[in-house]
Write a protein that binds this DNA or RNA. Structure first.
Lengths: 198, 198, 198, 198
DNA sequence: AATGAATGAGAGTTCATTCAT
DNA sequence: TATGAATGAACTCTCATTCAT
């Protein structure tokens, strides 16, 4: 009884987090009302507080939801023995795909996290910077292996990869018809080879 | 009533737009109150309505302010007879620099425009897509001239350039110590040459 | 259904009343939530409604609990054949001690009864005024017997005795280290002899 | 202009404090809504926040309003050269009269101050304990001068005087027909001479 | 050209209460 | 007998907006 019922609450709460993600993604944190979220979830406004003790907690949960396995996936990629190009494409795929999953939680994390209080933001920041560090290591390793040209500023390159992924993430969220695979492949190609012919 | 008085009003209104830009950039549209804007401008809340008939109009003005000469500059760049590489660096410079100017209006445009009603957004969209089109033309021209490799998806490349500029724009706004010139130069280099050694 | 079960319910209900008394005494009626009371009792919020059909009923029960044997004790004192001074000290002892018993129900009665609807308040008022009447009779009797000076306004004196007891009751509730016996003795002495030396 | 207008706001705010006092006195702090207060003042609910930044601030202001000159009056009485009996009657008069003035602010202070946060309560406590100290000094002085019997516990007596004043204060607030002067005179008499004939 | 004062709508939040289980 | 879940009404508070001055 206990295990199952506990997981029922947890399950419903998870639904609530996903509803919050969807609404925040569409209208922004301050642009969404708790009534909007409740309606999306199919309950009444007041009942939302059975699952969150404040609107802000809902935002924090959405952000956590976005980051949780995102950072984890990157750990796996970094630890794999694949060559640079494979790791790069895996990272980009992982990142951009996230924008299509989890009801837009990734977009919410990217756009709205600044409305969280310092303490909670710090916690998220650690998860996020683990990801960033992993990516930077991959690129540095690429330099050492000769797969990446040695005059590249690896820190700069890391930020740029993340920036591109976020930019395309926003675009594919806005346009549901866009081909995910196509975007990923072209991003990788452009980052690898640049504009100029060899 | 005279020309001079009218231009004094225009001047003050411009100040109001810049204040709105600064406040919106820091706290977001919904996170900012009209009192915040008025305080930043050094007047009282009610007086703001002498310059804007609504908070939303203030947002629209900030977005317009961001785009106006931004699009114009691109026209100039596109019309110039420079070679591809020069045009690319000019475009990136123009775009990223904007984030440091105009009290963050560019950031507001990028982040908050979705809160404008359809009609106003449409108007902005036209200005923005003129810019996009110019950039795409430049790249296509680069392909024809041989400066850009011919298997590049030009539309994709355009969006990516814009995406990178916006991503770095956000970063340099958040960190005032960052070297603008350095960023611009590295963006151009990465876009031109990619990761892989020639 | 059996006698034993009914009395088990009665017993539990009594516990609930005592919990309500404690919580109301600490935070006031409007400052306490039904969740607070339930927590104090060790059950869940909804379960409280098995014992009370409303929060207001809980308040009424607490007040009744406070007054029930309080008034009764006064009947006993009044009916006893003791001399005036003994009766006075007995009344004061009974009254002030109540504040240390019944989880603060007496304080609740004194402070929060105004939140009861007229009808219920009326019922309590009768119990209370029985007490008051008894005390007034004792004093009047004291006048007749010569134990009390004849120019005293007995009604006024009654109210004052009650007022002093309530005031000290509040103080001893707030300070658990205060010596009950000491307070009672000093109250009696002051009321009997006044400030001025004989 | 400035002086007069500033005092207009101050005047209106004072009206708001008095309205809050009246409503809190009747229904208690938690039993009163900000709408009740606004209605009593003849404005709309939201407008109340032009004068108070929170309901709690309103309570704090009411308490301050109650105490401000109350403590001051006691300073004057204590400093006067009158004999003990005159000082006692002056103190009682000052205290009990307060309950009829200031729209019940004194009652609010006595009953509802516990809902203020520690910091604000502390500030009030200092004002209140100055009053208490003054009264205790008067009684001790009475002992030294022989006007008060020497075996009296002065601290106890002080608390009792305050307790009686508060108790009668509550009663005269509830019953507008009660004769203030009569009550004061009888309180003084009872405290001075006690029940027992000389 | 600007402000003080007020408003009303709507926000987030709490909470007494209900009820199927 | 007790609970988890939900509800709806009320509450405090914020804020864009208006307008007489």
């Amino acid at each position: 009884m206990s295990g199952e019922e506990a997981s029922k609450y947890t399950q419903h709460r998870q639904d609530a987090i996903r509803s919050a993600a969807a609404v925040f993604a569409e209208k922004g944190y301050h642009g969404s009302s708790t009534r909007d979220i409740a309606e999306h979830l199919g309950i009444k406004q007041g009942s939302l507080y059975y699952y969150f003790k404040s609107k802000e907690e809902a935002l924090a949960e959405v952000c956590l939801y976005a980051l949780r396995d995102y950072a984890q996936q990157m750990d796996v990629i970094a630890a794999s023995g694949q060559p640079f190009e494979a790791k790069l494409i895996a990272a980009i795929t992982s990142h951009i795909s996230k924008y299509r999953e989890q009801n837009g939680a990734m977009k919410v994390y990217h756009t709205e996290r600044l409305y969280l209080p310092e303490a909670k933001r710090e916690k998220l920041y650690q998860l996020g910077s683990g990801y960033r560090q992993n990516l930077e290591n991959i690129i540095e390793e690429g330099v050492r292996s000769g797969a990446v040209r040695s005059d590249l500023d690896c820190h700069f390159a890391t930020q740029t990869v993340i920036g591109i992924c976020n930019a395309w993430g926003e675009l594919i969220v806005r346009d549901p018809d866009m081909e995910l695979f196509d975007v990923i492949q072209k991003c990788t190609d452009l980052l690898s080879n640049g504009f100029i012919p060899k």
